[in-house]
């Protein structure tokens, strides 16, 4: 009985997505009927073909992948390196630096977006990948996350490696990072998904269709084809698909990342 209730709740939560998929197969005029149909009477894939061409899906996919991929690699490396220094090394200024970095979290994104935009503009990087990517390469959340992961990790293994003759560089790459693989994966997945859904910054720094990333392209499509809902739904499905795939493959990592930040998200 209660389990039925759970299933019912699950269906309610998923229903909007089902509707999205369903509408994406409808013809443009079908939605004008009353009552609005839940399922397409004559399913068509024309919307997908059109959306792929209009986004254009390949270009957008590539741009977003470049953005999310670079940022993912950048954030993982810088966060892991910084976290390693904070947890495993002793040096003057460690605690002060860490506190200062934490302090950076109090700056909301929008507060930084404007001066960063002016900076990127002054550098002549508007509408380029460097402009899109450079500001996102380091994440304080990422540093906190990796630091926390390393703190949880037993020291003994690294000490043993030190005695075995490993230098800090070897230690970092061959011992600490492999040991922290779950955390590294979680951070990578989180960074990737975060950038896939990044909207405000790409909106600010990109101008041309050539540089559009997923969310921006989807929003533009919404403006261009305001009346054609099935068409929009097809594009929405296309853009969401990679996210759901990542989530399906790495659900554990996604959950670990979400938990750490207390479900902090950009919206």
């Amino acid at each position: 009985m209660r389990k039925t209730l759970l299933v019912g709740a699950a269906i309610v939560m998923i229903a909007p997505f089902l509707y999205m998929v369903s509408v994406s197969f409808m013809g443009e005029s079908e939605l004008l009927r009353w009552p609005p149909p839940l399922f397409p009477t004559s399913p068509t894939t024309a919307n997908y073909a059109a959306a792929i061409a209009a986004l254009p899906f390949n270009r957008v996919l590539l741009n977003t992948a470049v953005l999310a991929g670079c940022v993912m690699i950048g954030q993982v490396l810088t966060s892991a390196a910084a976290g390693y220094a904070f947890v495993r090394l002793k040096f003057p200024g460690r605690d002060g630096t860490f506190r200062l970095m934490t302090l950076a979290l109090i700056l909301p994104t929008i507060f930084l977006v404007i001066p960063r935009y002016l900076m990127i503009e002054a550098l002549g990087w508007i509408d380029t990948f460097p402009g899109l990517i450079s500001t996102e390469l380091v994440s304080v959340w990422g540093i906190l996350f990796m630091r926390h992961a390393f703190l949880m990790q037993p020291r003994d293994i690294e000490d043993a490696a030190r005695l075995d003759g490993a230098g800090e560089w070897t230690l970092f790459w061959q011992v600490t990072l492999p040991l922290a693989r779950p955390a590294v994966t979680a951070l990578a997945v989180l960074a990737f998904m975060d950038q896939w859904r990044n909207f405000l910054w790409p909106l600010m720094v990109t101008r041309s269709a050539r540089m559009e990333v997923a969310e921006v392209a989807l929003a533009r499509l919404h403006g261009d084809y305001a009346a054609n809902v099935p068409y929009q739904m097809a594009a929405a499905v296309l853009v969401s698909l990679p996210l759901f795939l990542v989530c399906l493959i790495a659900s554990r990592s996604v959950m670990a990342g979400v938990r750490f930040t207390g479900a902090d998200a950009r919206l």
Binding site: V7, A9, A214, M233
Partner: peptide, 23 residues
């Protein structure tokens, strides 16, 4: 199943969610 159902909207593309709800 319920866990996945709750997680899905959270990880979805925000703009897609916006379009979907508008529909």
């Amino acid at each position: 199943l319920l866990r996945a159902a709750f997680l899905l909207p959270y990880v979805a593309s925000v703009v897609a969610v916006a379009l979907l709800w508008q529909a």
